[in-house]
Write a protein that binds this DNA or RNA. Structure first.
Lengths: 214, 214
DNA sequence: TATCTGACTTTTTTGTTTAAAAAGTCAAAA
DNA sequence: TTTTGACTTTTTAAACAAAAAAGTCAGATA
């Protein structure tokens, strides 16, 4: 790589480092990426990285948070142009999938696995999910107000739906052979997510029996 | 323990060993249970166990398969007494949950984790899921024939539903602190499974837009 | 003053060796 | 046919050393 860093611009510099880090992390995962390597890629000393980021975890977090912000920004933009709540959900599911794939790469940790990366990822995932739930609640409430969705506790509903999607992702990942996802595997996952979402939405539309009344 | 083994009855003897093994495995998991211990519990020599089971894995498999057969037997019994397809699904989900809890104990492997137990468990889980899918397909087909469910490919539907349930279980397990499941955590999981199932069934009942036509 | 570096210390990971524990075998006994 | 004690082989665990990576810092650079 050995790209040139921008001179005299702290903001741009940080962004430059993030891009380099993202490349390495996306390619090799957290544990197989060293600070040394990231620094070398952009002709910096390792110590310089520590001038901008207190530690490796912070750098990793910044990279992931970057992606997440990008995603939510785009999502809000897209949703703003849609009227129907059910269409919003479908849009969210689709866009969310692209983030999942990025996240999958970033968190690709070789067999050595958890114990160090797991809590870090868990924290990042929780924040993502919190924001996601918020948005889902907004959409579900809108559907309720417009009289097309029937469900009492929309927060509960949002958490359930979020679980459901993530559950499907996990199950499909377990089916994968290697660490990489083939095109077919991806297509299958997308299809399942869509189908589950359609049924879910349908269930909401005609949900005459509210769970609370049972 | 030190229970007495039944004399001169190979079938009963095997069952006796299985019960002893189940107790240990359910309590400590595969890796923390030794053949020696199981043997000692029933006043046998370790070598005797190897007369009935070729190796430790076979014994473990036999224990799990035992549980599964019991489950399917009970399930078929219960389902036979129900008319409506949607009620059958609810019954299956509920009963399936008790099996999940047993399975959870049996497969409780301490931090040392995968690499040895994982493929073994995966094989057992796949067989379970295959049978489960079969039953689900039967139920979905019945619902379709009776004109209350609308979906084209019921096999696909069964796999999706199975994924969905397992996904919810996994997500809820990830939320758990320790290895054990508290009563509250269990109640929450049961509630989510039920709610998801209800929405799913509802979605099927009013699924005017078949996924294939989109 | 803000940014950066080489040389340094500390922590984590990896590899190696050895001992203990558990799996698995077998000839002979009951 | 079933069971056992004594045996061999394989797997796990502990202890230690060496290597690699994380993280620090006084001083250089501009």
């Amino acid at each position: 790589m050995h790209a040139k860093a921008p001179e005299n611009e702290p903001e741009a510099k940080i962004d430059f480092i993030l891009k380099a880090a993202q490349k390495r992390l996306g390619l090799y995962g957290y544990e197989k990426t060293t600070m040394q390597e990231i620094a070398a890629d952009i002709n910096m000393s390792k110590a310089a990285l520590y001038y901008y980021f207190p530690d490796k975890e912070s750098l990793f977090k910044a990279v992931v948070e970057n992606e997440q912000e990008e995603y939510f920004h785009l999502l809000e933009q897209r949703i703003a142009q849609i009227q129907a709540a059910d269409q919003m959900i479908l849009e969210l599911v689709e866009l969310r999938h692209t983030l999942f794939r990025k996240f999958l790469n970033l968190s690709k940790f070789r067999l050595s696995e958890n114990h160090k990366v797991k809590p870090l990822l868990a924290g990042l995932y929780n924040k993502l999910r919190e924001k996601e739930t918020e948005i889902l609640v907004t959409i579900f409430n809108r559907g309720k107000q417009n009289g097309i969705f029937y469900f009492d506790d929309t927060v509960e509903l949002a958490v359930l739906f979020s679980d459901l999607l993530q559950g499907i992702r996990i199950m499909e990942m377990k089916r994968m052979n290697g660490i990489e996802m083939t095109l077919e595997e991806n297509a299958m996952l997308v299809k399942k997510l869509r189908q589950a979402t359609l049924l879910f939405i349908n269930g909401l539309k005609y949900n005459t029996i509210l769970p609370e009344t049972i």
